Amino acid sequence: MSESLASAEKAITSLWDKHLESEFAHKSPEEALATMTNNPRVTIVPTMIGGKGTEDLRNFYAKHFLNQLPPDLEVTSVSRTIGATRIVDELVIRFTHTVQMDWVLPGVPPTGKRIEFAMVVVVYTEGDRISAENLYWDSATIMHQAGLLTDPKLPVLGAESARNMLSHTAPLNELLHRTQR
C-alpha cells in the first residue's frame, strides 16, 4: 500500500471515529456536525428518516436520534472497509427498547423488548469532512423482536441473524426449511 493511501485511510478512519464519539459518547449534535461538510446528509434507509443540510440534520440529531439512544445500547464492530473517500462499517446493534426511538421504530412506544440487529453504515467524505451517511438494516427483524410482526408464516428472523454475524455458527436456510414443513 502506498504511503499516501495509508495516510488517507488513517485520516478518514480518525474522522469517522471522532464523529462516532461525538454521537455515542458525547451525544452532541454540534460536535457531530463539526465533523461534517456544510451540506451533510444522513439517510436511515429502512425508515427514510435523517436530515439534509446542517439545520435539518441538527434537528434530527437533537430531537430524533441522540436523545433517543437507550442506556444499554451496544455497538459491536464486525468489519470495516476503508477506501479513499468512503468507509463501510458492518455492525451489530443491541439494546432494550426502553425509550421512543424514531430513527429505528418511528411512532412505536417503548416495548421493553430486547432488540439485536445487523447494520451497515456507508460513510462518504469530501476532503476532511463527512458528507453523507447511509444506514441499512432489516426492519422486519426489528419489528419481529419488538412484537409487531407476530405471524409465524412470515419469512422473518429475530436476533439470531445478528448473532450469526459475530459467530457464524447459526444454521443457515431455516426459513427455507420452515416453508418445506
Rank of each mutant, 00 (worst) to 15 (best):
T85H: 13
L105V: 08
I82Y: 01
F95H: 09
I44L: 09
A25S: 11
E31H: 11
V78F: 08
D89R: 05
S22E: 15
H144F: 14
A34V: 01
Q68A: 04
M36A: 00
A32C: 07
D89S: 10
S2E: 06
G107T: 05
P152W: 05
R58D: 08
P29V: 07
E116V: 00
K113Q: 12
A118S: 14
G158V: 11
L135M: 11
I44S: 00
Y136W: 10
T81I: 11
E90W: 03
Q100D: 14
M119I: 11
V108C: 09
L148F: 07
L91Q: 07
G158Q: 13
D17Q: 00
A170M: 13
H64R: 15
S79W: 01
R94V: 01
V108N: 08
F95K: 00
V104A: 15
K52F: 05
E55G: 04
L5D: 14
R80P: 06
L175N: 03
P40R: 01
E9M: 09
V104L: 10
T98R: 08
I130R: 04
K10W: 04
N173E: 09
S2R: 03
P152Y: 03
S7H: 05
P46Q: 00
T111R: 06
Y136H: 13
R114W: 00
R178T: 12
T47M: 11
V104S: 05
V156C: 11
E21L: 01
L5G: 06
Y61I: 04
L15G: 07
T54Y: 02
I87F: 08
L5T: 08
R114T: 08
D72A: 03
E160G: 04
L91F: 00
P152E: 01
L5E: 15
G50I: 02
S161Q: 15
V99D: 10
E74F: 01
E74K: 12
M1Y: 01
L20I: 13
T125N: 10
L135W: 03
H97E: 00
E133V: 06
G51A: 09
M119C: 15
M36W: 02
F65L: 13
Y124R: 04
V45G: 01
L91D: 05
R178E: 13
H177S: 03
